[in-house]
Structures are given as structure tokens and as C-alpha cells.
Design a binder for these strands. Structure first.
Lengths: 106, 106
DNA sequence: TATATGCGCAACTATTTGGTTTCTCAAAAT
DNA sequence: ATTTTGAGAAACCAAATAGTTGCGCATATA
């Protein structure tokens, strides 16, 4: 069973869960209220997110609060790095072009 | 059929294809040589990537060169933005803490 | 003109996925 | 002590996915 960050964020519900938990730790029931599904479905998503260590369960009495492991999110950022280099260099090229046009005019 | 950028990058082969194409436009056959699958399998991935507009086909005789639509990659970056804010603020908190410790010493 | 090549498309298969329902267990509330 | 509540686990199902093989259609090459 593949289980990595990219696979985890592929599902829109899971992305929404991550966004909610980023603001504050939440229980499965509290999360489920935000979606049009059952708690069990949310629970399954939480299991997947936990397995790839994007979130962490914290037992508190009979409730379980899930918190975001923000460090793990950086893995996505790290992968994007190689492309960021490209779009930044393209921006610079455009920038250079604009300067040249400007110089021509003046 | 769900078809968005996040779903597209969920597959490791597709991520590899994107990385290869980012360096230079490539044909399906050229790409397939890099993987342990058939051209048809790669072709299917290319279709998915094309559908969500991450890549663009450019016919050249009987060959089709696929180029990366780098702009689309920014969508992922945009989504990460909300979390970047969080990890940057946490970094600042750590930064502040370190300054305080430093001040205490001196 | 005949053949080879590059490629997308369709049909089929096995596996994975997202969801549901049902069950059990432990912690709170009555 | 009994009932309610929060939550994970298991069994099941429909849909989606990743891959395969076989096909047809162009564009090159002989």
C-alpha cells in the first residue's frame, strides 16, 4: 500500500481536514460536522493521514485530538523547489525583456 | 472523474515524468525508456497530465513533444501558502526564543 | 508504393480507493 | 450500575486507477 504525502493530499476531503487541523487540533466528530459524510469516513482519512505522519493523534479522555505535523508539509515544498527555480528564472527572463523594451523607448 | 493537479502528482511515475519534462520537452517513447513500463502506460499518464493542463502536447511531424506548463505547478505552491505562513511563524517563535535565551546569558 | 515507426484509443483485468454499516471498547454522564 | 457518547476495526460494495494487449491512423523511410 503506497502511503506518502502526495498520495495523502490527493483527496480533497483530506486537504480540507489538513486545513482545518492546521488552525486548531480537532476530534473526528468535530471534523465530520464540516463534511457531508459519516464520522467513520473521516476516521479512515485520519488513519491515512496519521500513517503518513501528516497528523498526530493526542488522546484526551475519550476524545482524540488530531494535530498537524507541519514539518511533513515541507516535503511538498521541497519537491516544488526544483520547479520554483524554473518559474523564477522565467520571471527573470521576462524581467530582462521588460527592461530592454524600456531602454529602447528611452 | 476527478482531475486536478493534486490527483495528478499523487502518482510517483507522473511526478517523475513532470520532472523529466521540466528539463526538456520529450516524446512518449523517450519518456517510456526512463521507466520500467510500456509506452502505452506512459501515454495514459500523459493523457491525465494533459487533461489537468500540467503539460501540453506539441505535434512535430509524427512525434509529439510534451512540454511542462509551469504555471499550473504554482497551484500547488498557492495551496501550500497557508501552511508556509504557519511554519514561518513557528520559526519566528523559535527565533524569538533563541534571542531571549541569548539576552539572558549576556 | 510498400513498410516501418510514433502515437492515441478501446477493451479488459487486477488492485486500490472512498464510502457504508455493524460491532466492540472505553470513558463520561445519569 | 446503567446508559450515552467518542472512536477505532472489520466486512462489504461500487467506483476509480494503473496496467496490459491489440488496434488503427498518420507520418516517415525504403
Amino acid at each position: 500500500m503506497r502511503r506518502d504525502v502526495f498520495q495523502a493530499i490527493a483527496d480533497p476531503t483530506r486537504r480540507a481536514i489538513i486545513a482545518l487541523i492546521a488552525l486548531q487540533a480537532m476530534t473526528p466528530n468535530a471534523l465530520a460536522e464540516h463534511f457531508d459524510t459519516t464520522r467513520q469516513a473521516v476516521s479512515k482519512h485520519l488513519r491515512i493521514l496519521t500513517e503518513c505522519e501528516l497528523i498526530k493523534p493526542e488522546q484526551q479522555g475519550r476524545e482524540i485530538y488530531y494535530t498537524l505535523e507541519i514539518e511533513k508539509m515541507k516535503e511538498i515544498d521541497k519537491w516544488l523547489e526544483q520547479f520554483r527555480k524554473i518559474w523564477e528564472s522565467r520571471f527573470n527572463q521576462l524581467d530582462n525583456l521588460l527592461s530592454k523594451l524600456k531602454n529602447k523607448k528611452s
